[in-house]
Amino acid sequence: MLKTIQAGDITKAVKGMVMNANTDLGADVVAAFKKGFKDEISPVGKAVFETLIENAEIAHAEKVPICQDTGMAVFFVELGQDVHIEGGLLEDAINEGVRQGYAEGYLRKSICDPFTRANTKDNTPAVVIVEIVKGDRLKIIAAPKGGGSENMSRLTMLAPSAGKKGIVDFVVKRCEESGSNPCPPVIVGVGIGGSAEKCMTIAKKALLRPIGSANPDKELAAMEAEMLEKINALGMGPQGLGGVVFAMAVHIEKHPCHIASLPLAVNICCHASRHKEVEL
């Protein structure tokens, strides 16, 4: 049975999500701040967590952005193959939602031409990653992403001989080089395998998991724990001012790769880990 979804309803849902995502932090993020406050031993680091909790409360109460960088509008879409969209194209509907939400929510428009740097003034175009799935549902996840943390992303095509040690070393080094730039306490998204573009996509998708949820695969969960320990042992702490909680979590996703390759992607998210989802 084919299900019809109106493009206008997609626009409306997207508009609501971009506005809410930028003012209301998820419960998992706030819980991670409280855990970080408890785990952190540096007084300055503890004060950072207190500040972030206070900031989240103000943003929620006053409906103002948690961070002035309200991000590039990134969407992960799961489109059931039995869904028919009526009244316009999916991507147009999403962009219209971004346009309306960023205007009405007083969110910053941060998208510009790469050469002229001229601002598009409505935060479009959005980045839309679509996956066709079975069934008749349309799931849209809005994940606005700030430039400071996105700039710390890296993709490397390791030799298969680098193995698990090579992977862990690269991720830890990437965090050390990033320092305070990505607004720690961060969440580190790691993609292993796939092609180059698949690898970065799964690294970003890993950031959508509830903070600190271990990968169901025991081997990956162990790597997440090892990386987290090694990253935090660097001593950089919240905001890079010194401490033991630079990263609140490491999330890894894996995909089969070519026999010649061992792709590895790091996509770091700042402490304002914003995402909302809707199912139509």
């Binding site: 972030l52 206070e54 103000i58 943003a59 103002v64 961070c67 304002a272």
Partner: peptide, 12 residues
């Protein structure tokens, strides 16, 4: 340095 991401609070 100011605290990155504490933007609603800093605005005050």
């Amino acid at each position: 340095a100011a605290i990155g991401g504490a933007a609603a609070l800093i605005a005050r």
